[in-house]
């Protein structure tokens, strides 16, 4: 975490060193600075990226290398549109790492089922890759992921190539609507979850996706017998400062940028039902 003596609102200037086209509206960016990796985040943490003259926005750090941070960014507005236009070598500001992180210590030794939808796989991926990198610390790993269409699936190289090769790891992919080439599953994530029926025994479920998906996934997990402590999710709110000052991201007395974005369902249920 940044020391309190640093000015937390000033970014470090870095560059984009690699761009991967994921889907028609999602790209993955590698960001580094003249001093190497800007910082070493924990799984689930966030960073503020700025295309300085355009704007600044908060993103999950989806993974990291020895000398770069990785972000997967969906094009939805002014700043993200501009980011999608830049080329390798472009200047980008970065500040962070922000927020808490996934509670990897309490997940050790447990089976984990990851349930993601759309760009919601971006925050989960830092944890999934952490579990893969420390494979023996965890039990069975299962990833259930869905998107609107086959073209909208992010991280296809992980979903179809990297992760299925990992020992004792299964990947289940579904799409809302198939196309002529799609041979896989068609249907919504919560329905597929109820079909797969993961047993809550010794297991933790981690979910992230659009608000509607989260709502139904939480209901399905409850039906399957998961307790509120066994369910972990990450929240998203509008953010400006990222450091618990600007007041933008509150739910009740919690600031999602500082106290979140990761919460267990048990913790969430203590907050006003605005999430």
């Amino acid at each position: 975490m940044a020391s309190s003596e640093q000015n937390p609102l000033v970014p470090e200037m870095g560059t984009i060193t690699k761009i991967i086209d994921e889907t028609p509206d999602v790209k993955t960016f590698h960001v580094t600075t003249p001093n190497g990796k800007p910082f070493t985040p924990k799984p689930g943490q966030l960073a503020m990226l700025s295309l300085v003259p355009v704007g600044e926005a908060m993103f999950s750090i989806t993974w990291q290398g020895d000398d770069y941070l990785e972000f997967s960014i969906k094009r939805v507005g002014v700043m993200t549109d501009a980011l999608h236009e830049v080329e390798v070598g472009a200047a980008v500001g970065v500040r962070g790492p922000y927020g808490n992180s996934f509670p990897v210590d309490i997940m050790k030794g447990k089976d984990i089922v990851f349930i993601g939808g759309g760009i919601g796989l971006a925050p989960l991926r830092s944890l999934i890759n952490h579990c893969v990198a420390n494979r023996d610390d965890f039990g069975k790993l299962e990833v259930l992921y869905g998107s609107r269409s086959p073209a909208d699936l992010v991280f296809k190289y992980d979903l179809f190539d990297n992760w299925p090769k990992v020992k004792d790891m299964d990947v289940y992919v579904t799409v809302d609507r198939g196309d002529d080439d799609w041979k896989g599953k068609v249907g919504f994530v919560p329905a597929y979850l109820e079909e797969l029926k993961p047993s809550p025994e010794g297991k933790i479920a981690v979910t992230c996706g659009p608000p509607v998906m989260i709502k139904y996934v939480l209901q399905s997990l409850e039906k399957l017998g998961f307790s509120d402590e066994q369910v972990i999710t990450t929240l998203e709110m509008r953010m400006k400062c990222g450091v618990g000052k600007c007041g933008r991201c509150n739910i009740g007395s919690k600031y999602i940028c500082l106290d979140g974005p990761v919460f267990s369902l048990a913790e969430l249920k203590k907050l006003p039902p605005e999430w």
């Binding site: 609102l9 700025s50 300085v52 003259p53 355009v54 704007g55 600044e56 400006k240 400062c241 000052k245 600007c246 007041g247 933008r248």
Partner: peptide, 24 residues
């Protein structure tokens, strides 16, 4: 104490980032 953050370009490659009071 809520605030918003924006930037203002004064020249093509120059400008400043500023915050303003914001309200809920």
């Amino acid at each position: 104490h809520c605030f918003d953050i924006n930037s203002k370009n004064t020249e093509a490659m120059k400008g400043y980032k500023y915050r303003t009071w914001d309200a809920c």
